[in-house]
């Protein structure tokens, strides 16, 4: 029985952001832009959606006199990612 994939994570950019946060405890906005090659506007929209779902925390601070936005994954986000990968395996498995 195939389980539905979390629609919030089953989107290219949001999944990329969450994957990145799974390996880095904290990631800043520029790093996301650098790795995903997405536009700032697009990233901001997807961050807002992930934040609203409680998957990530957004931390705003100042670094070298510039405003710096960094992200952290929450426990809810980690659980959602792990469930997503588990469900994904069902789709990838060859049919018997």
């Amino acid at each position: 029985m195939y389980k539905d994939l979390d629609p919030l994570l089953h989107s290219q950019l949001r999944l990329a952001i969450i994957s990145l946060l799974m390996v880095h405890e904290e990631v800043d906005f520029n790093q996301i832009k650098d790795i995903t090659n997405a536009t700032s506007g697009n990233i901001s929209v997807q961050i807002k959606k992930l934040q609203d779902a409680g998957y990530i925390d957004v931390i705003k601070s100042f670094k070298n006199n510039y405003q710096n936005t960094s992200l952290r994954i929450t426990n809810k986000g980690i659980k959602a990612f792990e469930d997503y990968v588990e469900n994904l395996k069902q789709y990838i498995k060859p049919a018997k």
Partner: peptide, 26 residues
Amino acid sequence: MTHKEFTPSESLNLITNIILEAKSRF
């Protein structure tokens, strides 16, 4: 990167690539 929905195998590829890319940035 575009904002689109994709197949499960593309999804797994994306996760693998992003994690590898993040881990190799010095």
